[in-house]
């Protein structure tokens, strides 16, 4: 029912990029993303595109995979491009009444679209080559100096790890419950938007019940583990 979800979209592999320290990948990705915001010449865009293409090649990621992340953002890219084309004042290229297409408009639209595509692709490469767990681990270690300022970095990263860990479990559970309800006549595919939303009630309630049950079990287990740690520290 839930078809082919690539989770945290990690693409397993053993390339140089896969093996690199997650901290390096996070920082490098941030640096690249900041630069993509700052650059403004087509030559610079080409350089970054080349750099990203190289990373895709070294990481041995199928090209179709890197484009997957773009799909949900596509409407936004198209929309910003259109707005830019039609609203920028400047040298007129073509026009009919109030509709004006200017040279500057096309230029800004192209750069904006390139910028968005490169941003998404560079962050995709990081998530495609790093497991969610090692990402949070990397993040925790980067932020660990904040511990001195009494920021609960470890607790935050623990929360993130737990959340990430439970996404696949919840998806699996959703799939199971949907199948069980479909077996007794539930229909998730027909009807208008309102009817369809309503048809998910028989899925959502059991899902919440099971999520709470799992959270309860986990809390109990963690509490127990924490007590052990405290004892060790004291003793």
């Amino acid at each position: 029912m839930i078809k082919d979800i690539t989770l945290g979209q990690y693409f397993p592999g053993d390339s140089l990029i896969h093996r690199a320290d997650p901290r390096v990948k996070i920082i490098l990705t941030l640096v690249i993303m900041t630069n993509i915001f700052l650059i403004d010449s087509y030559l610079a865009f080409a350089v970054f595109a080349g750099f990203i293409a190289m990373a895709v090649f070294i990481g041995k990621i199928p090209f179709a995979y890197t484009l997957k992340g773009l799909k949900p953002i596509m409407p936004i890219i198209v929309f910003t491009a259109l707005v830019n084309i039609f609203t920028n004042p400047g040298i007129l290229l073509a026009g009919y009444g109030p509709v004006r297409i200017t040279y500057e408009g096309i230029d800004t639209a192209a750069k904006m679209s390139l910028r968005l595509v490169l941003l998404i692709m560079s962050s995709s490469i990081m998530t495609l080559t790093t497991t969610p767990i090692s990402l949070t681990d990397g993040l925790e270690r980067i932020l660990s100096p904040l511990k001195h300022l009494k920021v609960p970095v470890h607790e935050f990263s623990m929360m993130m790890t737990v959340a990430l860990r439970f996404i696949p479990t919840l998806l699996e559970e959703t799939d199971k419950i949907m199948k069980a309800q479909a077996s007794r006549g539930a229909d998730f595919e027909t009807g208008n938007m309102f009817e369809r939303a309503k048809s998910f009630i028989p899925v959502l309630i059991p899902l919440f019940v099971s999520a709470f049950r799992r959270a309860d079990d986990l809390a109990l287990a963690m509490e127990h583990a924490a007590i052990e740690v405290e004892r060790e520290e004291q003793g």
Binding site: K176, I177, K179, A180, Q181, S183, R184, G185, A186, D187, I201, P202, I205, P206, V209, S210
Partner: peptide
């Protein structure tokens, strides 16, 4: 089909409504 742990699929306010779910559909 009765799935493993079928009780995890219960959701209605009353047992009656839950059993009747498929018939109502």
């Amino acid at each position: 089909i009765v799935f493993q742990y079928p009780e995890h699929q219960l959701f209605e306010e009353t047992v009656y409504k839950d059993i009747a779910f498929g018939l109502i559909k």
